[in-house]
Design a protein around this nucleic acid. Structure first.
Lengths: 227, 227
DNA sequence: ACCTGAACACCGTTCAAGT
DNA sequence: ACCTGAACACCGTTCAAGT
């Protein structure tokens, strides 16, 4: 599934399956690879369509034959980056373990390309991020949570991971705030990975505790209203 | 301090204190107000310098007499938005309460202008966000945490709030991901405020628990190494 | 069917001249 | 000291013509 290393590099998605006419000279994989190469050095927003075309050795307008807009180009790349992230199945542990693994994978995949903006931050939602979101919700449903409990848990975790990626990006860009804080936070010396693991763990711990007290409160309310 | 409503509207910061020569025709407050008016309808990135100048009734280049670049303009506005947020003092409750209040205020201030990008996401760190970050760290220091504990707590909370703002912005822009998820998360019907309060609470709960177990583990390690 | 140069309507920012 | 139009070097995207 979705190797970026295919040397022949022909027909990744197969979605553009036409028979007659001049064969395409570019592949989705090639385009994605070119963008990721450029995005390793600046943010996606600072990569121009002209630069991508140049990296591919074609003209800008050739690029527009494969992708209708820059937003669509972003989605193409974001989907490619997120595609390898799996949704762990029910046999792979408790809901906590499965969610942790999914989020860890997703973050690792995205953090490998800090120049890419967050999947949801542009208009369209890349289908892969929708797939993962639905994966988390289904894990929670399997964990025996009520829909509104699942929604709260999902939102909290989603928010945390989003923030983590935002901070990853800030740091990769050498933001001044990060520098200032790094000074203040001496001598903690925490890896981004460490704060992620710690934070995710703490959040899940806290969520379980809060849901528990919410439930017992509701139960006692029910008992009270019955008497 | 920093009222946006001053009618005479002269000399906000006083930093540009010159005596001779033509007096300035614009105020920082006026500029900030103009940007916030425009930013209510689109993202800051989509507001052009020309549009700001137009909103102010001057030419673009007049604007450049007050602000050296668009980034500087962003900082000017971000600082203005964050200035009213106070760092609660030691007499205003436990460290949890004080941090919750600060973060709640900060989020409310920023969420009122969802078009503004996050304070740290551009290059320079607005001084006001540095002030608040240092405020949180000092509250934690006062709460009796070791520097590395404080760093972990700070990073987790900072990350969560950043994510919350990012999600606020996505939703304000009517992102498709939000729409899709809204469908899946029916019928929870959660306000952004509700998920924020719930999440922040859960996180602080989880952080306290995790720090506690970390400490007792360290204590038992010390005991073991002594024997 | 795919490729492509030229052009359009924008950007942020610099220059050089006005008062 | 402050103001300003014109110009520069870019954008993303459209057009119209090539093969």
């Amino acid at each position: 599934l979705s190797t970026l290393t295919g040397i022949d590099g022909i027909e990744e998605t197969g979605l553009r399956a036409q028979k007659r006419g001049r064969p395409p000279s570019l592949t989705d994989v090639q385009i994605v690879a070119a963008v990721l190469r450029l995005v390793a050095e600046t943010r996606f927003e600072d990569v121009s369509m002209r630069a991508v075309a140049n990296e591919l050795g074609t003209s800008v307008m050739t690029l527009y034959n494969y992708v209708p807009s820059k937003d669509a180009l972003h989605d193409l790349v974001a989907n490619h980056v997120l595609r390898p992230v799996r949704v762990p199945g029910p046999e792979e542990g408790t809901w906590e373990e499965r969610i942790c693994q999914l989020e860890r994978d997703a973050r690792r995949a995205l953090a490998a390309h800090p120049g890419m903006s967050l999947p949801g931050s542009r208009g369209a939602a890349p289908q892969e991020s929708v797939r993962l979101a639905e994966g988390v919700l289904s894990i929670l449903a399997g964990g025996g949570f009520e829909p509104d409990e699942a929604a709260l848990i999902f939102a909290t975790i989603y928010t945390f991971v989003t923030g983590q990626l935002e901070v990853d990006a800030m740091q990769a860009k050498g933001g001044q705030l990060e520098a200032t804080l790094a000074g203040v936070m001496e001598p903690a010396r925490l890896t981004r990975e460490e704060t992620f693991e710690f934070g995710l763990d703490a959040i899940i711990e806290g969520l379980k505790a809060k849901i528990g007290t919410q439930r017992s409160r509701r139960r006692s309310q029910r008992r009270r209203s019955r008497s």
